[in-house]
């Protein structure tokens, strides 16, 4: 006896529902019910008219598990055609990740660490920062995390670079057109709030786990949001008077964009790049679930086989990496700010 029988009886839909043949899959609560005593239904126990509850009364109504299965079927049905489009588009990403990983690991440590120090000097012009970078990488290499660190760094470099490459133009488009901004903001909100694990699920179906682009796409989708948002904001915040002056002296919109808007928005754009790098670092750890190499693998090992020491140490390694990346990008930001405001 189901709760909502009366509904279908009264509406005269009994015939549409078909005879109760005990068809369909039984749910967990059914099985539990069979095992226990049949209890008297009171108003207190009346369930919400959900798919499952209605299914009990009428077989034609699908169960909620049919809904999730339908979604899955639908995705699997379009998967092949989706792959035809997405696969070649994202192939360069696989290629870039593979090569970056190879280069960063193939180069010997005595070339790589000085090179990273040199890059830090070029970006930040600060001896202290260079010393910090040297100390952190030496420490990570000393505890034999060198290879994992380089893998993580390679993935972040590639993904953050692509984020900037795509994100800045998207941000510019948003700043120039209110319609574009309105339609993109919900998507950005969704990308930012969707739990990171959820990204991985459809991607696993779409690509083979051996392909680097699987985690590459996940990282980019997650990390691209701040650079888009802050580029949009930065360009919108450019002083209206300066824009008016640019117009009054006859600048083309191209000259305005590259000569005025982007340079003046640069502090905000760089703040976005900083956030994007930090978020790709967060995602690269989670992406180790889908075969992303690097420090995340060690974290995962710590969890899986309860190796507390490995887990803690690799966690510390990620923190060090985060500190370095943050300080270096902030140093670049500070230099841009100093140039404009000095």
């Amino acid at each position: 006896m189901a709760n909502y029988d009366f509904l279908f009886d009264n509406l005269g839909l009994r015939g549409w529902c078909g005879e109760d043949e005990g068809g369909g899959l039984s749910s967990m609560s059914d099985l539990m019910g069979q095992a226990g005593e049949e209890t008297e239904d009171t108003l207190w126990d009346t369930p919400f008219p959900s798919l499952d509850a209605l299914h009990d009364s009428c077989n034609t109504i699908p169960q909620s598990r049919d809904l999730t299965r339908g979604l899955e079927r639908g995705f699997l049905d379009i998967k092949d055609s989706l792959k035809v489009v997405v696969d070649p588009l994202t192939q360069p990403l696989s290629w870039a990740l593979e090569n970056a990983l190879w280069i960063m690991q193939a180069a010997p440590w005595w070339m790589m660490i000085p090179l990273l120090m040199l890059v830090t000097w070029g970006v930040g012009r600060s001896g202290k920062l260079v010393a910090l970078v040297a100390a952190c990488f030496s420490f990570l290499a000393f505890i034999d995390f060198y290879d994992h660190t380089m893998q993580t760094l390679a993935i972040i470099f590639v993904c953050a670079f692509i984020c900037v490459l795509l994100g800045v133009p998207i941000g510019i488009a948003m700043a120039r057109n209110d319609r574009v901004q309105k339609s993109l903001i919900p998507i950005l909100d969704m990308l930012q709030t969707l739990p990171p694990f959820v990204y991985l699920i459809p991607l696993i179906f779409l690509f083979s786990v051996t392909e680097p682009k699987l985690y590459g796409i996940a990282i980019i989708l997650y990390a691209i949001v701040p650079v888009v948002r802050l580029t949009d904001l930065g360009i919108r915040l450019v002083d209206k008077d300066v824009i008016e002056a640019a117009d009054a002296f006859g600048m083309t919109s191209r000259q305005k964009l590259f000569g005025v808007q982007i340079p003046l928005a640069l502090p905000n754009i760089m703040a976005g790049v900083n956030q994007t790098i930090m978020m790709s670092l967060a995602m690269v750890v989670i992406a180790s679930l889908v075969s992303a190499p690097g420090l995340g693998v060690l974290v995962l090992r710590g969890i899986r086989s309860l190796e507390l020491g490995v887990g803690l140490l690799s966690g510390l390694g990620i923190v060090l990496l985060a500190i370095i990346l943050d300080r270096v990008t902030k140093a670049a930001l500070a230099r841009i700010n100093a140039e404009q405001k000095s």
């Binding site: 008077d241 300066v242 002056a245 000569g259 005025v260 340079p263 140039e339 404009q340 405001k341």
Partner: peptide, 10 residues
């Protein structure tokens, strides 16, 4: 010439 100067700061 503008009231708020409107020079390019960079």
């Amino acid at each position: 010439v503008f009231q708020k100067f409107a020079l390019l700061p960079h």
